[in-house]
């Protein structure tokens, strides 16, 4: 199967196999007018198999969402067919409005305007806790 290289845009590589559609939806890539390729289950020497997303345009990406959803992702920025920048993502220290706090005792349960903010409290086990009530993200 051949998907043409892109000359200007972003390639999200090393996506855990099966995660591409989730990331596509979270990043709202369906709202873009440009070409987007979702490549699933590519052979990978490191990962066995992986997913790849190719976006044929440089867009603003929310690295916090990406890092939270799949911290192993590599983001390649392509210009004139060449990689001009490469980022290796990791779990963000804090995420805003990605996870919702479900604790009925939390202030966010009665004040709808408040942003739902979670902080990484245990990197080894990927544990995020609500900054208001310390509830663990589920």
């Amino acid at each position: 199967m051949i998907v043409n290289p892109i000359s200007n845009g972003i390639v999200l590589d090393h996506i855990t196999a099966g995660n591409a559609m989730k990331i596509y939806n979270y990043l709202k890539l369906d709202e873009l007018d440009c070409q987007v390729a979702i490549i699933k289950n590519c052979p990978s020497s490191k990962m066995g198999k992986k997913d790849i997303l190719k976006i044929n345009e440089i867009i603003d990406l929310n690295f916090d969402i990406l890092g939270y959803l799949d911290p192993g992702i590599t983001v390649n920025f392509i210009e004139d067919g060449k990689i001009i920048n490469r980022l290796h993502l990791e779990l963000p220290a804090q995420v805003k409005d990605i996870i919702k706090c479900k604790n009925p005792r939390c202030i966010t349960s009665i004040e709808q305007e408040l942003p739902h903010i979670f902080r990484l409290t245990d990197k080894d086990n990927s544990v995020y806790r609500c900054i208001y009530c310390d509830s663990k993200a589920k």
Partner: peptide
Amino acid sequence: RHPKEGAPLVASMKASIPVINAGDGGH
């Protein structure tokens, strides 16, 4: 003091004076 957990933190993010948490629910 507030029955909801995190309310004093919310107050401290907006207040221009120091806020002391005098108890936020069971937190």
